[in-house]
Design a protein around this nucleic acid. Structure first.
Lengths: 101, 101
DNA sequence: TAGGTATTTAGGAAATTTCCTAAATTTGTA
DNA sequence: TACAAATTTAGGAAATTTCCTAAATACCTA
């Protein structure tokens, strides 16, 4: 885990919010945007952009940054790219801060 | 704990290094800069600046940022300001990432 | 009080980040 | 093939961050 890269990817209010929203998509996105595949795949770029109140390209770049840091996992499915949290990395981060940092 | 403020205070390579160095001053600073009060007070600004290879004002500002976020604890002692880690906040951060983020 | 050391504050140039619009690309479907 | 929808890439203006030097302030000691 590249600690500085991970921290930088979370050092922006919108990106941090995205991570929180994705913890429980059912609580943060409209029903009609979710499906039975949401837990497996996550939420698509345009739905996240709408929730964030920002342009799609901006949010697309944010999500790419977070994926590059391994904080999120991207899955391309047809014309959509879905993003979900990388729970393993988030636990690794917590552990690293607790024991090593 | 202001999560975003804490994360921002750590989102710079030098600031993150300072936090690591202060975890074990005896391993990272020259003996002659340390005393029996080091565990209690921490390390002074100019010694940290020397270790970082940066100007004193820059490091002074970094330390202030980290104190404002409660990541470090400052103690003024005569003409020196000593900085040490806030271990409690660091543990709170780890716990928060693990359970809440 | 005067001078020396440590730190902080002020001001600013350069680099990076933020977040947009326009254009290009990818994929599905008629 | 052609068009539509989702996303990504490109380009850039504005804001923020980085990190410096110079100046001001704080504190100690003679």
């Amino acid at each position: 885990m590249e600690l500085l890269e991970v921290i930088k990817s979370l050092s922006n209010e919108t990106r941090l919010n995205i991570l929180k929203w994705l913890k429980d998509p059912y609580a943060h996105f409209p029903e009609e945007e979710l499906s039975e595949k949401t837990p497996e795949l996550g939420v698509c770029v345009s739905d996240i952009a709408k929730k964030a109140g920002m342009s799609v390209p901006t949010v697309s770049e944010y999500l790419k940054t977070m994926s590059a840091a391994n904080v999120l996992i991207a899955t391309r499915n047809g014309q959509w790219t879905y993003y979900k949290r990388n729970e393993q990395l988030i636990q690794d981060l917590a552990m690293h801060i607790k024991d090593t940092l």
